[in-house]
Amino acid sequence: MTGTGMIHGERRDDLAAYALGALGVAEASEVEAHLATCEPCADYVRWLRPAVDLLPASVEQLEPPTSLRESLMGVVRGEAAAVQPAASAPAVTSPSRWRSWRGVVLRPATVLAALAVLAAGALTGYLVSASGTDSDERSLVTAQAARGASDEAIAATVEYGAGDDAILQVARMPDPAPGNVYQAWISRDGTVEPAAAFLPNQDGASTAALGDTLEGADAVLVTEEPRPDRKVPTSAPVLRAPLG
């Protein structure tokens, strides 16, 4: 396709289909390559564009539910906090310390890192005990405000089990809403990936396998979800562990 200073009728058909997003990938790529060199065709697509852009405005205008906004902003604020921890929330375990621990304690049932626990109320410090025999490996963790969590401190640790898989252990987790589950997420470079879903027992305790994917992770998050197969969180974290 070459620019000729005028647009042939058949070419207009292709350009209109392109503007509508109705071409296949290969055809669209071909048109884009042509548009880069043909000003008349590019002008034509620019002229058509407002008609396409206004198509969404033709539909019934609905107000999204406020719960959607709350859910979305809960995730966004959680990720922003994971990437840029607030100055008022001191780091629990420094990246260097966490990494050095990892190098030292890659063995079963050894506490690797303490999780910063999001609980209701003001910032509070408390201890998360190490499990297993490494009772000297205790770390002060910092609680941050989160909606819906119990005033009673939630305890959480990450350990490496058999096969070097990281395991999240929680205690004193409140029951999720009926039908809901807790979902663990690995936060890395501003994105989150689903890990495991879990339900606490009657004592509020549970474990969840995080896999061997903590390399480069900056936080472990836990959210409450309506089903366990979510690809993205739909609610604000109730637990957050800034790992590095």
């Binding site: 647009i7 207009r12 058909d13 292709d14 350009l15 209109a16 289909a17 503007a19 509508l20 109705a22 008349p40 002008d43 034509y44 620019r46 002229w47 058509l48 564009r49 407002p50 008609a51 396409v52 206004l54």
Partner: peptide, 29 residues
């Protein structure tokens, strides 16, 4: 494809007549 083009061109022309569209020429190139 012809129907798509004719429909879009007519819709675009009507928008130019009845609505403010500031970011593009109102004349068919």
């Amino acid at each position: 494809k012809g129907r798509m083009r004719l429909g879009l061109e007519k819709a675009r022309a009507r928008l130019a007549e009845g609505m403010a569209v500031r970011d593009s020429s109102e004349v068919l190139p």
